[in-house]
Structures are given as structure tokens and as C-alpha cells.
Amino acid sequence: MSDPVQPPPSAERHEVMIELRGMHKWYDKFHVLKDINLTVRKGERIVVCGPSGSGKSTMIRCINRLEEHQRGQIIVDGTELTGDLKHVEQIRKEVGMVFQHFNLFPHLTVLDNCTLAPIWVRKQPRREAEKAAMEYLEKVKIPEQAHKYPGQLSGGQQQRVAIARSLCMNPKIMLFDEPTSALDPEMIKEVLDTMIELAETGMTMICVTHEMGFAKTVADRVIFMDVGEIVEENEPHAFFNHPQQERTKLFLSQILGH
């Protein structure tokens, strides 16, 4: 992998974008997230890893209220996330999400997928929204696919459209929920490259992934979660070379072993 990506200048890094304080979540009786405390500053790139069932996807899905937390506080860009629909909609405009299974809208063209939210949520005129969408599609390197339907694209192309679609809303934070886990190996690189370029623009990112190479290149901090708790959190070099907890060491040996 290339040299680690440079972090943005320190002046911008102090503003807190996401704060999770003592957050707990239960599915019925099952305690899926235990006492999560996390602070994410503007421009930071966080990679969350851990075995399946550790709650990492659940945690980031709580940040844009796709899941609800039962105890503790989640504060996104100064707004607290509660049941209040107005707060939720406000936060969702500022937080973009990329899913493992892309979730593109199959009945709309790639361009319409990207312009749907800007037109209907931000009330942009169609021409302006389409112009911006074409710019983002160029950034993810697939402008020629604008008039195709998602079903006609490969997995890697679909995921890049999904990234462009989220970016068209000009979010302040991007959440990635295992974005490359459903892709064929030869397509993983194109999506990771897109994400690295995005990181270089200074976007605040939280990425749940198993791609440790990506973590080493881009992350400011790596967080390891297991059975609903944050076990260890450190900057990549220290995390991979000097893990502190036994569970972290075990996980790293499994995932980096082959």
C-alpha cells in the first residue's frame, strides 16, 4: 500500500463531530452494545474492526438512527439524537451512509439515484442537482454509466455509485458499513481507492471493515470491538504492532494470519 494519507491541518481537527457517551443498546433482552464511549473529531478517519456479532455495524447504525439506543447519549454535529423526528432528519442530512449491499434504487437510473435526495430533501433544482451528480460520478470514475440502471453495473461500480449518491447530499460525516464485504476481490481495490481519495479531501469517516490494509493506509485510529464493547483503540501503527489486550491479539492473529 502507498504512504499513509496525511491528516488535515490541526486547526480543523478540534471540532467534535460525533460523541457517544455511555451508550447502551438492547435487542429485547440481548445486550448488544455495552457502555460505548467514543469521540470523533472533524476530519478523523476511524476504522472499526472486530469479529462478527461484535456490534460494530449496530454501533454505526445508531449514529444515523437506523437503530435506536436505549441508554446514553449520541450527539452528532451538536444535535442530540433522540426520538424527535426533526433532529433525526436534520442529522440524516449531514450523515451519509454506504451499505454492504449497496442498496441502490433499482427502478431509477444511476443519475436519478444520485439526484433523488438533493432534489426532494435539499430542494435543489433538477439541473443543478444533475450537474453536481455528474461531478461526483466523475470523481468516482464512472460518469459514462450515468444513464444505466443499477442492475446493469458490476458490484464495484454499484458501490461507487452508492458512494457518489451519499456524497451528493454534501454530508459532513460518512459512515461505511463493510463496503467491500460483498464484492469480488478484483473489485475491492477500485472501491478502496475511491474511499482513500475521499479521505484525502478531509472527510470525517467511520468505516467498519475487515480490510486491514486500508486501515493501515488511511486510519487515524483503529477501534477493536468484541461482544458489544470497545476493547481497544489506538492509532494504526501501535494497534497492529503492539496490541495491548489479549482479545485484540487473538483477533489480529486470525485476521492477519493468512
Partner: peptide, 8 residues
């Protein structure tokens, strides 16, 4: 979920 995440 995708529609929710976009703020619709």
C-alpha cells in the same frame, strides 16, 4: 434504510 439514510 437507504432512503432513510438519505434523509427522505
Amino acid at each position: 434504510e437507504a432512503a432513510d439514510a438519505l434523509g427522505l
